[in-house]
Amino acid sequence: MKTEAPTTSLGQTLEWLRKELAEMQVQDQRLLLTLRHLHSVLEELRTESAHWEDARSSGGTSPIRARAGSETRGRPPVSSRGLAQLIRGEDSRRSSLP
């Protein structure tokens, strides 16, 4: 019976390690999705910033009008609260409120 105890303990340890690795893989996937989302948001902000700089330097269109026109295209702006929820891994639900 003394030989069975280490085998059971080793089996339980291996099972625990498998569970931990599976959880880590899920976390890695979430972090990857978050990173990709943050990268796309940063690219959008860079593009918008360049657009504002062009509008400001050209003098033809005010930055406010340029921004108003850009808000109707693409995705809505991301709030800092939404980014915080995304980073924490919380499921974000779209609300009916703007």
Rank of each mutant, 00 (worst) to 15 (best):
Q12L: 14
S49F: 08
H51D: 12
M24T: 04
M24V: 04
L32Q: 13
L38Q: 02
H39C: 06
H51N: 10
D28N: 09
E43Y: 03
Q29V: 14
H39F: 02
L14Y: 07
L38G: 06
E48G: 09
R30H: 15
H37Q: 10
L17R: 06
A22V: 03
E53V: 13
K19P: 00
L31A: 07
R30W: 13
L35G: 07
V26Y: 01
S40I: 01
K19A: 06
R30P: 02
H37R: 11
Q12M: 11
Q27D: 07
G60E: 13
W52Q: 14
E44K: 14
E44Y: 04
L21M: 08
E43Q: 10
M24W: 05
A50C: 08
E23A: 15
H39K: 13
S58N: 13
R18W: 01
L33I: 13
E48I: 09
H37I: 04
S57F: 05
E53Y: 02
T47Q: 08
E43D: 11
L32W: 06
G60F: 05
A55M: 07
H39A: 09
L31D: 05
G60T: 08
L45H: 10
S40V: 05
E23K: 09
Q27P: 03
A22K: 06
E15H: 08
G60I: 05
A55R: 05
R56F: 13
R30N: 14
R30S: 14
T47M: 04
Q25P: 00
L21R: 07
R36F: 03
T13K: 12
W52K: 04
L45Q: 08
G11C: 11
S9F: 11
G59P: 00
G60L: 06
L33A: 15
L35C: 08
R18G: 02
Q29L: 10
Q29P: 00
G59E: 05
L38P: 00
L32V: 02
H51M: 15
T47A: 12
V41Y: 01
L10P: 00
Q25I: 02
L35W: 03
A22I: 03
L17F: 08
T34W: 01
S57V: 03
V41I: 12
G59V: 05
L45E: 09
S49Y: 07
L14W: 06
L35M: 07
S57K: 06
H37G: 01
E53Q: 10
D54A: 11
L10N: 11
V41G: 02
L31W: 09
S49R: 15
E23P: 00
L35Y: 09
S57R: 15
A22D: 09
Q25A: 14
Q12H: 07
W52T: 01
R46L: 10
L17N: 10
L42W: 07
V26K: 15
E43P: 00
V26M: 11
R18H: 05
H51I: 06
L38N: 05
R46E: 10
H51T: 12
G11A: 14
T13S: 08
R36Q: 15
L42G: 11
R18F: 02
L31T: 02
H37L: 12
L45A: 11
S40Y: 02
L42R: 14
K19H: 00
L35R: 15
L42C: 09
E44S: 12
